[in-house]
């Protein structure tokens, strides 16, 4: 499964680099959007079928919001922790981390607000987060318990990494992953500029 994913991305990079399917490039956005919608449609069907999920969610109540806040806190602690070792100011490392895997937006934001260099780091870092999440979600769910499967994907837990959470941890955790991902997605455009303008 992971091999299939890596192969898909690598094949895409090679195709993009070689300029094969050059006429196809302009349709990437449309195709990605369609694929994403198809993906979420089928995940939605799975969620809707499992009616006991909603019952369980109601039992969690307000505590559900602690999940995205916990993912955000852990991400920022980890980013701050490593900032000195990679020679980045703490606030810049936090801004990159606060992309939560949403590489397109965080890359563009930091490219505009700071420098193309930080924009590239943000883009790559959040691409890596998504790729690493896909690989590590099954392991994390197995070793640390099913709830931790919502953590690696960050904001991508609502779309691209959601199927992996669903597979590794079950549909009820996938619902929490979606809620967590949606909340984190909303936080990205708020936190990234905030950290950039935070003098440290």
């Amino acid at each position: 499964m992971s091999l299939l994913i890596i192969a898909s991305v690598l094949l895409g990079i090679i195709v993009g680099k070689m300029g094969i399917l050059a006429g196809f490039i302009q349709y990437i956005d449309l195709i990605s959007t369609l694929a994403l919608n198809l993906l979420l449609f089928s995940v939605g069907i799975e969620l809707g079928r499992n009616k006991e999920i909603w019952q369980r969610l109601a039992n969690y109540g307000w505590r559900i919001i602690l999940i995205p806040l916990g993912v955000a806190l852990g991400t920022l602690l980890g980013s701050a922790f490593i900032s000195q070792a990679i020679d980045l100011p703490v606030n810049q490392a936090l801004a990159v981390g606060a992309g939560f895997g949403w590489y397109s937006l965080s890359g563009v934001l930091l490219n505009e607000l700071v420098s193309p260099e930080l924009g590239t780091i943000a883009f790559l870092s959040n691409v890596f987060r998504e790729l690493l999440a896909v690989i590590i979600i099954p392991l994390v769910a197995l070793k640390f318990g099913s709830l931790t499967a919502v953590a690696p994907g960050g904001a991508t837990s609502m779309d691209t990494t959601l199927p992996f959470v669903n597979k590794a941890a079950g549909a009820d955790i996938a619902l929490m992953a979606f809620i967590s991902g949606a909340t984190l997605t909303a936080l990205v455009p708020i936190l990234v500029p905030l950290f950039v303008n935070w003098p440290l």
């Binding site: 898909s8 991305v9 094949l11 895409g12 990079i13 090679i14 993009g16 490039i25 195709i31 691409v127």
Partner: peptide
């Protein structure tokens, strides 16, 4: 993922 790869490449 293929589309993402193309965007990077």
């Amino acid at each position: 993922l293929f589309s993402m790869g193309i965007s990077i490449g």
